[in-house]
Amino acid sequence: MHDGPILQVENLRIEIPTRHRTLVAVDDVSFELARGEVLGVVGESGAGKSLTGAAIIGLLRPPGRIAGGRIWIDGKRVDNLSQAEMRKVRGRIAGAIFQDPMTSLNPLFTVGQQLVETIRTHLDMSRAEARARALSLLAEVGIPAPEQRLDQYPHQFSGGMRQRVVIALALCANPKLIIADEPTTALDVSIQAQIIALLKRLCHEHGTAVVLVTHDMGVIAETADRVAVMYTGRIAELGPVAEVVRAPRHPYTAGLMASIPAIGETRDRLYQIDGSMPRLTNIPQGCPFNPRCPAVFDRCRRERPETVDLGGHRVACWKHGEQEA
């Protein structure tokens, strides 16, 4: 047992070799996660948020590979583990929930068989004990009539109920860390709220830490304690959720917040960040956001900004770096 942070990521770098060149999809990403904490990771598609999540639990798909940096889960270094060793960590210490519940469920087995198998892989239990635990897990994630549902197949569940089963699967061995990658994106709003409330309650009750990867700032605002904003594979800003949402320090975050429509507001036009996030083949020199930044100055075009710590709130922007220099 180790009582430091449940998760430490240090200078993580993920590369994707292609025919012509090697792309850097995640570049110098570092953060820590305390026990029971929820860290939101937001960004546009291609910003590297899902790759970061996949790398943490050892599910990075080739040709993507960890090319640098280190990852510790519960004090144990995991980035250099073999597949077999990682499989033991995954499930027992860290669980995963993905956008599409069917990526985690096998359509040919009943939900009960899958839960029992997972439980017995990680915990020393008899078949009967495991079945009892599966029942209580289904009840805990809010599936009505769990006794009957246990012997049904995934196709007999609705999308929201399937996602609950996936959460139950992730919780089988009482993990200390859950990586949730867009867990509610495929669901309707009314079901989305149910799943978010469920995740929040479970984390609170079990003291499980969560890395919540999503593009929905609203979900982050209500769920996360801290939030990391990613852009072109790098962390642009990381801080307490209230600060990042209400007083963003990075011009990209500020633009992102202002471009989100809200119910009942009277703005006639939304703020827009012109252009789009550059492709990985084409990341500009200096600050990757500089061609779209309203506050750009000379240094931004030449040098990549260093991360500045403004009291528990990190920003990679020369606007803040200048003050120190």
């Binding site: 109920m161 709220a193 209500e222 989100i260 809200a262």
Partner: peptide, 18 residues
């Protein structure tokens, strides 16, 4: 049920059923 940027840390009462 709409997630709202202005309600930081808010726990909503989700609509039951589907």
């Amino acid at each position: 049920t709409v997630p709202d940027l202005n309600r930081i840390g808010y726990t909503r009462k989700p609509m039951s059923g589907e």
